[in-house]
Design a protein around this nucleic acid. Sequence first.
DNA 1: TAGATTGTTAATCGATTAACAATC
DNA 2: TAGATTGTTAATCGATTAACAATC
Lengths: 212, 212
Amino acid sequence: MGDQPISSKLYKRLTRYINHLKRLPPGTVNISATAIAESLGLNDVQVRKDLALISAGGKPKVGYEVSSLVLDLEKFLGWDNYSEAALAGVGNLGKALLSYTNFEKYGLKIVVAFDDNPDIVGKEVNGVRILPSDKMVDLCTRMNLKIGIIAVPESSAQKVCNMLIEGGVRAIWNFSPMHLDFPENIVLKQEDMAASVAMLTNMLRQSIEKKV
Amino acid sequence: MGDQPISSKLYKRLTRYINHLKRLPPGTVNISATAIAESLGLNDVQVRKDLALISAGGKPKVGYEVSSLVLDLEKFLGWDNYSEAALAGVGNLGKALLSYTNFEKYGLKIVVAFDDNPDIVGKEVNGVRILPSDKMVDLCTRMNLKIGIIAVPESSAQKVCNMLIEGGVRAIWNFSPMHLDFPENIVLKQEDMAASVAMLTNMLRQSIEKKV
DNA sequence: TAGATTGTTAATCGATTAACAATC
DNA sequence: TAGATTGTTAATCGATTAACAATC
């Protein structure tokens, strides 16, 4: 356990499992991988392999215990405790991220935000204080923050990335379309809106072509 | 061409190519797949295969013509014309999407938005009129919209999805964490924040463990 | 010509699925 | 016991990479 790199597809399946399990009729004690697979349109062996990765296993003829499966999934996904994060950029997107109540459920807590717009510096959004960007390095260091979220315009993304890393951040979640340069030991999750739009419109085009 | 299903990884690479090409020093006429691969940390054969998919090809010893490559990429990604979309839900996320100026660059134009909050219905954000949700079916039909963006809370996501489909929408971009049920002929791009957070925090954990 | 580069064919790798034995 | 279900081993599939011939 623990060291294999895990694909983004697997994470998506794991979050689907936990969502599905939590929506099961109350009182459901056990569930089979076959049943999960059927509900979610997946292959049953794949579900079993995924579950083997995160849980102690099920019982033949009975299936998996729902409650412990939920706990195992939550533990594996990191929903059982918080990681604290700094947000850089409190424009429309930054505000949306600050207000997104589900992050706490997913084990992520934005504890401080930075921006240079004098209209919002000093204010709070959703209980999070907005500070000027020149405090970023110092504060990330002092708060020992390891996660930085970049929601600034393209033009300042690299600068902000550098500051976050200088402040000791080790993981970057980048919402700007800018490709970032950073040292090997930093991990990046790139949120790629351009690719999403392209995928959506191309899937649509192909789906319409097929129909015609 | 045209009918093979294209993986999300490929779309991400294609958008990286176009970004890279556009940032090349002005006056750069040709570029080799090898050079692109080197800059982006990819395999050169992979770059060549990707480019073969979208362009007429390059010349040995010379490489590819940058300007036509950019045009080919833009065409393939759908950046050369608009697809019009309806947005459902103008909360913080919806507002961020409405204000995201890059969508137009990516060939997506939100032309109408729906919400039930009386404080914002009737107003405009970024030139887009916000209408009450009960007009959704009718307006999507009349405007012949094929793309619907769901940015409503989990609890109303399925209802909104149904209305969009009733209004003739064929492609759904879902930002709510709710898994949606819909007919076979509808395409879906699910934006999965929970999976992104899990991936980010787990990558961080593994990166820190490795270091220790 | 020599060498950089393309494009194709073959090999590898990883992820998914099928087949099947184990077990409650 | 019989049958549903797990978990493992083997086969398949798709994507990536390596090897190499073609070409400007």
